[in-house]
Amino acid sequence: MSKVIEGLLYSESHEWVKIEDGLAVIGVSDYAQAEMGDITYVDLPSEGDEVSAGEEFGALESVKASSELYSPVSGTVEEVNSELESAPEKVNEDAYAAWIIKVRLSDESELDALMDAAAYTASLK
């Protein structure tokens, strides 16, 4: 059973969002990392890139698969977790600690469309 953390928001494509210091911190859920297996590479966007809700901003790679990352919100990428470039395994180790990007939101109302922990847990069944 994959871990779902209370207090985060989740997208249907298995990204999580946490609002911290006015920024949307985005990562992938434990379910997503388990589905991928050993992650070998995280394709990251650049700081300053514009992302929009539902659009691709990067990808996770394993030996035999690739999975696109979709931004749950729109805005500007303020920070990327460059640690993942050399240590993609951190996503496998703790998907909720290994954030991927931080986005300055352009439309906070988009958060309303996301699921809370209970709804996400239900969606995994």
Binding site: T40, A59, E61, S62, V63, K64, A65, S66
Partner: peptide, 13 residues
């Protein structure tokens, strides 16, 4: 290696 770049995995991407 680095096969996630390739057509049999990424298809049109």
């Amino acid at each position: 290696t680095l096969q996630a770049r390739e057509q049999h995995i990424r298809r049109e991407k």
